[in-house]
Design a protein around this nucleic acid. Structure first.
Length: 468
DNA sequence: GCATGATCATGC
DNA sequence: GCATGATCATGC
């Protein structure tokens, strides 16, 4: 093959590979082809790599036309002697000017049968993934794939504090498979490393040990929240105000560490906690419940690097003194015009719930009407709930919008036929807006107050640990 | 007391 | 000004 030329780098030395890769910076993929093949690149070559259905196309282009080696499916890293695995990965610019990873970084397929016997350190996964060469290109909507520009080329290996969490994530996935629950794996079971679905079609299933139920094929991947953090803090080295919860090395798993810290203040009243942590509560801020939790965790602001990396969403929950939860739980708004174009399987809401781990901070009113901290809980939605009732409500919502929302006005209040909290045990649709003028356009062109999915209060109660 | 519509508070 | 998390208000 004509691209197997002499190599202008030492393939046995990671640093040499990295410094050679930095010649890619500021180049488009077309530039890389032109540099290698001259300016008369054949149309068939360009269109071969341009084809979006060829998922690894841009990676292969870099392998063949920049590093000059043959792409392979080897269990070893791409540069086996140097131990370096090449990853070509997109990032994007957000509306507010910040940057984030466009997607998760898929590392290796999971073989459920062998996983349960592989320790992290000696695993096929870690052998291949411990030292990555990240080639970051800036993704833009509506431009040719070959016009994307490469911006960064860096060796990357997770720093020690991240590695502790990644090892524990690996263990969590391993234990679920060991229990014969590979079919119930979810990206939100874990923090930085996830088992993400990876199949040619959504119907693909594969065997697992300790269960006859076949499971979706999955791969180890760094979550997109983790990759965003890596990009901003380790690659771009932007100054970050994020504070870490874990200040020094600990053997306690992250979530246990958090739970232990919070539980030290179990049964303290909100008032006492505000005094203790010097929080001004005169204005009754609505984020008081989460502020207290951050202060207990030693965080001065309202975000932490660990939660950012894991994409954890904080929710405070208040239990009344009758043991019930009064309020339903809101989620980000959906756009009417967008949701009607979605399929459930790759819908915004399904992806959000499948990918998000929640941190519940739970308070309860005692018999004197004093609000007291009870503890906290990490939670992600159970597989059956997501694919059962939530799917049902989502589908019904889309159907209502497609058929035309029925709206009437009763006593100055708008009422509609979206799924109600009385229609389903888990979730429903309700307004989520600043006021009645905070509207979004329906498929028929009319405007209607913005809406979101809500979890029913009773469902949330049913999900809380018995100890809370 | 619940169901459902309406709106507040914060932070970027 | 908007997105998001949190809570209020009213009628049955």
């Amino acid at each position: 093959m004509n691209y197997l030329k002499n190599k202008d780098y030492d393939e046995t030395d990671a640093k040499s590979i990295e410094s050679y890769s930095q010649n890619l910076i500021d180049k488009s993929f077309q530039d890389v082809l032109n540099d290698d093949l001259g300016n008369n690149v054949e149309e068939s070559t360009s269109s071969y790599f341009e084809d979006r259905s060829f998922k690894g196309g841009l990676g292969n282009l870099i392998e063949q036309h920049f590093f000059h080696y043959e792409p392979n499916n080897s269990p070893d890293p791409d540069f086996p002697i140097a131990g370096v695995e090449l990853k070509v990965t997109p990032f994007k610019k957000n509306k507010n000017g910040s940057y984030s990873a466009k997607e998760r970084l898929v590392l290796t397929m999971i073989d459920y049968m062998t996983l349960i016997d592989e320790s992290f350190e000696t695993s096929h996964f870690w052998n291949k993934s411990k030292l990555l060469l990240l080639i970051h290109y800036l993704w833009k909507k509506d431009i040719d794939r070959l016009s994307y520009r490469i911006q960064y080329a860096n060796l990357f290996s997770p720093p020690k504090q991240d590695l502790e969490i990644i090892k524990n994530d690996y263990k969590i996935i391993q234990e679920k498979v060991e229990k014969g629950l590979a079919h119930e794996l979810s990206g939100s079971d874990t923090l930085y490393l996830e088992a993400c679905t990876k199949a040619a079609t959504s119907a693909d299933r594969t065997p697992q040990p300790n269960s006859d139920i076949k499971a979706k094929p999955r791969a180890f991947a760094f979550k997109s929240s983790y990759m965003s953090y890596v990009l901003n803090n380790y690659i771009m080295k932007e100054h970050s105000d994020d504070e870490s919860i874990i200040k020094s090395s600990t053997t306690t798993p992250f979530e246990d560490y958090i739970k232990n810290k919070i539980s030290k203040y179990k049964d303290y009243s909100v008032e006492e906690l505000c005094k203790k942590f010097d929080i001004d509560s005169d204005t009754k801020p609505k984020n008081l419940g989460s502020l207290i939790a951050y202060r207990i965790l030693g965080i001065k602001g309202n975000k932490t690097s660990e939660f950012e990396k894991a994409g954890i969403v904080v929710k405070t929950i208040r239990i009344e003194n009758n043991g019930k939860i009064r309020e339903h739980m809101s989620f980000p708004n959906f756009k009417f015009a967008e949701i009607v174009k979605e399929n459930w399987e790759d819908s915004t809401f399904r992806n959000y719930l499948a990918d998000t781990r929640f941190f519940f901070v739970v308070y309860k009113y005692d018999n004197q009407g004093i609000l007291r901290l009870k503890g906290c809980q990490f939670w992600n939605i159970p597989y059956d709930d997501l694919n059962g009732n939530v799917k049902k409500v989502w589908t019904e919502t889309v159907n209502v919008l497609k058929k035309g929302l029925h709206i009437s006005e009763v006593n100055g209040r708008l009422t509609n036929n979206f799924p109600k909290s009385s229609d389903n045990n888990i979730c429903h649709v309700r307004p989520h807006a600043r006021n009645q003028n905070d509207v979004d356009m329906l498929p028929n062109g009319d405007y209607y107050p913005k809406q979101c999915f809500w979890f029913n209060n009773n469902y949330i109660l049913s999900q809380l640990d018995i100890t809370l």
